[in-house]
Computed example of a mutant assay.
Amino acid sequence: MNTIERYIARVVFSSFAALALIILGLDLLFSFLTELGDTRNQYQFVDAMMFMLMTTPRRLYEYLPLLAMIGALVGIGRLANNSELVILRAAGMSTYRIVYAVMKAAFFLMLVGFLLGQLVVPVSEEYAQTSKAIKMADGKVQLSGKKKGFWHKESSEFVHFSLVEPSGKLHGVTRYKFEADQQLESIEYSKMAEYTDGQWRLYDTELTRFSNNKTQVEQIPEKIWDVSLQPALLSVIVLKPDYLAMTDLYDLSDYLEQQGLDASSFKLSFWRKAYQPLAIGALVLIGISFVFGPLRSVAMGTRLFYGIITGLSFKYLQDFMGPAATVFGIEAWLAALLPTVLCAILGWLMLKRAG
């Protein structure tokens, strides 16, 4: 990378960094004010601050494509406003070489996004969500209702967990077992489940059996739970699909399909993560083409407005493709790729038209 390319990359990256501080700062401020409304029991002011800190990588990961596009738009716009683009092109630097220099800076953001999505976000988000739930429950997690918590299905059993700790310990485990004719056979409630010595153990269990219009209740202090659910899969139960690592999404999709369950949302999240570097590149291309094309001589505020609208449109199109893939039977990889392809084509056509 020569001196001019380094200069262009530095201008674009400094614009990205400034925007990241502003947008993340505003998001954290308003989210923190909302978070204070959840303070109760052991979850207090300091815990809310720690929760915001631990969820910051996830927020940055979600904003990264939008920030990359607006950063390119603002950075190249600064060069245009200072007539530096005119000088660069008069010196013989082509439009595509300028695009190449910006893409080198965007590559760093792609790498940051990949590392955040794979290594940082799954760990920090799981810790934040479970720590908050434990402290808000104030040691009474086993009494929480069925409106909250997590559901899991295996064979003829539907299982509800009131709370899942990062260590793999389960609280408030309710198992609903059905017969072949879909009649309820039994309900089993355990205050806690723990994975030790390669198997699950249930503690303080109350088993209720239903047969011949009668119920039979049995108290069991401790028992073995024969289930194929592994502790490694618990994090994917706690977190939303978009917050999981690609490896976890792949494993969970395979597991759900083996259980005869719908795994489309996890497949879609997997491919979105896989294509995020391409999405960043496509949005950066649109940001550059705006400056060389229709937004070359407008004010910075106007560029920011169009950049935000374009980024939000891309996000809404991504969100729309999820239900559309289910309704129209579109493959998950294609549904996740389509918004990126459309952005790349639009950016390329605008750039080519600008010359």
Rank of each mutant, 00 (worst) to 15 (best):
R40Y: 03
D204R: 14
G113W: 02
T302D: 02
A17C: 12
N41K: 07
T208V: 12
V123Q: 14
A335P: 01
V291A: 03
T95N: 12
L312E: 01
T215C: 00
L249T: 01
F51S: 00
L244H: 06
T247H: 08
I98H: 01
N213K: 11
Q259D: 03
R209V: 01
V86P: 05
R58N: 09
L19S: 08
K267N: 11
F178K: 12
F178P: 04
I70A: 10
T208M: 10
V341Q: 03
S124Q: 12
W348F: 14
V123H: 10
C343I: 09
W151M: 02
E257S: 07
G355L: 13
W271S: 11
A68E: 05
W200H: 09
V291H: 04
S186C: 02
L116W: 02
G307F: 05
P294C: 01
A128V: 06
T55A: 03
W200C: 02
L24Q: 05
N2R: 12
L342S: 05
M192E: 14
Q276F: 03
F161N: 10
I330K: 06
T34C: 00
F314G: 04
E188R: 12
M50Y: 02
I98R: 05
I220H: 02
K147M: 11
M350S: 09
I308A: 11
S94Y: 01
H160Q: 08
Y100G: 14
G71V: 10
G198K: 03
F210Y: 11
W200N: 04
A193D: 03
A245D: 10
Y7D: 07
T205A: 03
V46E: 13
K148Q: 15
D181E: 14
G139D: 06
N82F: 08
G92V: 03
R6Y: 00
G71A: 12
V238P: 04
E218S: 12
L346K: 05
A354K: 08
E157K: 15
A299N: 08
S167T: 06
D248Y: 01
S235Q: 14
N212D: 15
P294T: 05
A332D: 11
R303E: 09
A232T: 13
L21C: 11
L351M: 12
T310N: 04
L268N: 09
G75P: 06
R175L: 13
Y316S: 06
L233S: 10
E194Y: 01
F161V: 06
E331F: 05
L36G: 05
R89N: 03
Q219V: 14
E257F: 02
S289R: 07
F270N: 06
L349Y: 00
I237D: 01
A128S: 04
Y316G: 08
L143N: 10
E126L: 15
K223D: 06
A101Y: 05
T302S: 07
Y7C: 12
S83M: 14
W271H: 14
E62V: 13
L60R: 07
V298R: 11
V99F: 00
F178Q: 09
L64M: 15
F45H: 08
L334P: 02
E222Y: 03
A48G: 10
M321R: 07
M136K: 15
E188C: 09
S269D: 07
Q183H: 10
